[in-house]
Amino acid sequence: MSFFRRFSRSPEAVIGASILGVLVVMALFAPLLFPRDPLSIAGPALLRPFQDWSLPLGTDRLGRDVLAGLFHGARTSLAVGLASAATAIIIGTIVGTLAGFAGGLTDEALMRITDAFQTVPGFLLALAFVSVIGPSLFVVVLAIALGTWTGPARIARAEVLSIRERDYVASARVIGMHPLEIAFREVLPNALPPVLALSSVIVAAAILTEAALSFLGLGDPNRVTWGGMIAEGRTVLRSAPFLSIIPGIALVLTVLGVYLAGEGAVETTAVRRGRS
């Protein structure tokens, strides 16, 4: 049975994948559907949702279109979530592979550095990093990755420790391959699956961290972010709570979609491996 047919059998996985699909469409078509700058004024201030059909979700304190913000915010959330998860997984697998394959002092040093990063609360580290270097999309991605690469590193190392004893690694040594080439061309690709199984959790955590950073005013100031919208709405929380609640619901649905789709994909591949 194909991957997709088995994947589509699990209702949770289908729901998760549909949410992500809608989100990707929102992110891709945001500039087409809402060509105006989402940070520009679109109508009267503090318009409630479902009053004016040209501004279906209403406007914020400065009269900016909430729906346009939601669409453009999806771009930022997805881009930052995917980019920082990818960065974290790349750094983590490289460090984990090096530590596991080299062993000895290199392993000891790299793992102590991993310990140190795990000791510092990831969110505080991201906060400090962004506030020292200055908020831009690239810095935010790097800051989130700094706090999340340790998980992939530990898993990759554990996997490499068992892989490096296999026969094909020994034969690669015998034919005179360079150790670094063995580590990155033979060992690393085989250590990747368990790390990738973790990717949905990492993406979800990255999206939540980005939202929290922009909620505290440390996001890229030139972009709409859901966290920033929630913070903006917070100033009028008593009179117009919908301004904070709507982008929050979008956040919850996104993260839930990532979890559900990720869990479905991991279960589907696990079943396939178990059968073959």
């Binding site: 939540l208 939202a211 929290a212 909620f215 904070s244 929050g248 956040l251 919850v252 649905l253 839930l256």
Partner: peptide, 8 residues
């Protein structure tokens, strides 16, 4: 619940 941002 785990998908809910704490601040929100």
């Amino acid at each position: 619940l785990y998908a809910v941002p704490g601040f929100w």
